[in-house]
Design a protein around this nucleic acid. Sequence first.
DNA 1: GCCA
DNA 2: CAGTACG
DNA 3: TGGCCGTTACTG
Length: 672
Amino acid sequence: MSEHTASSPTNDEVDSSPDFLSCPPIFVLPTHLSLESLHEIEEDLVKRNARLTYDISEARLILGKIGQEKRAALELRSRGVWTEPISKYEPPTKRRRVEAQEPVKSARQDDIIDLSTETEDEEDGMRSRHGPSRHLNRPKPPSASASTPHPSIASSDQSDVISVVKLDWLNQCLQAQELLSIEPYLVYLARQIPSPAKPQPNQPTKTTTKSADILQRAKQDAVLQPPPPPPTHNHHSRTHTTHQPPPLPQTTTSEHDEVVSPHSPPPWVKNNIIYACLRSTPLHPPNEDFINQLLKIRHIRELTLDEIGVRAYSTSIAAIAAYPHEIRRSSEILSLPGCDTKIANLFHEYQHSANHTLATANELDISPSLQTLHTFTNIWGVGTKTARDFHYNHNWTTLDDIIEHGWPTLSRVQQIGLKYYDEFLQGIPRPETSHIAAIVTKHANRVRPDAGTPIQCAIVGGYRRGKPLCGDVDLILTHRDEHITKNLVVDVVASLESEGWITHTLVLHLMHSQRDQQTLPYRASDDSTAPGKNFDTLDKALVVWQDPHFDDSDHHHHHSHADTDSEEEKTRQKRKRNPNIHHRVDIIVSPWRTVGCAVLGWTGDKTFERDLRRYVKKTHGWKFDSSGVRERTTGGQVVDLEAGGETWEERERLVMQGLGLGWRDPEERCTR
DNA sequence: GCCA
DNA sequence: CAGTACG
DNA sequence: TGGCCGTTACTG
């Protein structure tokens, strides 16, 4: 396949000459190249110490299978790099401002930790815990773009000068085993200029379309027949039945070669199953490291308000997370539903980068703005819009900035979120989660002493998926008798509040909206709650939890607590501050008749749930949510799929089967 | 960004 | 109404 | 080329 014969199989002696280390960062244009040969070229370069980059904006030397200057400019522009031609003798100017940093807005440089904060927070009885003013990784100033000087092969290492060179140059260099002048191969010598106006992601330009077509074909091939083992004569890789590739043929030398048998695609790949809810997705998939990189990119998309990008990356991530083999070649990616050339190229970059990272993903770590936004969105009650408002309109960069300058403008829940910022970010261990569940269950039964049979509690969410640490605790309370579950949330929360377990109620959700009246007309009359609609039937409560018990006896260091007696003698009669961590707990109450839906709807990961709704809509025309399955036709008749299930587990299974999902263990719904 |  | 939350 | 979860439900 290689229309470019760089890697000689007989590489006894000279495997790595010439050495491209002295060349400026190199980018290889994929245009007119198959994925295979593109990767082959890149591997040849890497092997010879080239500073290969996958971020074209970093590249100063660009290799491509193109011959015309105009075409070269088009290629660059379609990738977001705007250029103007320069004559070969014009002295380069310097430019290169990486990231225009925001005006330095005179922030007072030190943080006054606020007594102010804690006194102002009393409005709903927040106890003044010490302020949320914790150290936050404060953004580092952008390091001046350090473009290390290096000898340049053809002078074009200047910061803003880009050379587009025919691929043939590389071939000749390899053949000659020495670096040749790029001069005869130079297609386009350009200076990078700022993109006009806003960074318009202009039309894809047919060149990219074209290269995408090639890869598209590769994708189809990949689906039908696993990527052809490279022309390595020997070895008929037999189609092995299960996922367990036969031992790799030892090719004593060149380790970088894909001389391995292809994986047999799992059925969902062959059948192009696009819904994550129809696949098995474990908590720790074989390609977790790569997924973690993609998760960072997705997060950047979130912080930059690119909702569609978030959706797209979620789809790709879910597919890769379901893939049961460690991916060896980017062409494998192309075979996965929800993944295309973009992700395949990212995988290739990941695979060949020194530390297995992606340049785009690294932005999250190095961009001060992104870090600030990341910090802000971690406040419960602050989403991406508000985070950007804080940062870009108010010029706040730290939590202390918000506290100092914006505290009174925050909503109640945002104040709570800020107050317990660090504590909410602490993962909750499984034993603690089950302990919390036991206490909630105990109180539920305490407030329904005549229930006959006990109220049951299902721990759902991340806990049920098997996570060792959970971001919050999700509990579903249910009972066969609807009289028992009615108003249960209010009563349980009140009971837990009175004992001090719940310190704040962030929000109460009311499940039966007015529209739902029509969906359960049979209930409206049957229930003793006949009069109209019970507006007080609460479905879930999002609360702040703290174990009220702690050791406040001083007898260990009896006598002289010389440290604390200064200012709080007043509050310290017998109550010292409760040192226990505050956690987020969601208490959901479900009537028995739909508890299978509730459990199914609260166990899956986000992408699992989104795809579940899409799937149910597409294949049945129904609407699924955690409160039931309905017809989508107006008036939405209830579709009862779980009738007869005697346990909530059984009812969940019935729902899954009724929806056509088959069964999938909770631990297999980890779509990320 | 991917797909029907 | 926009924004946020839930999985 | 349009659609992407939810006619979510709550807050302010």
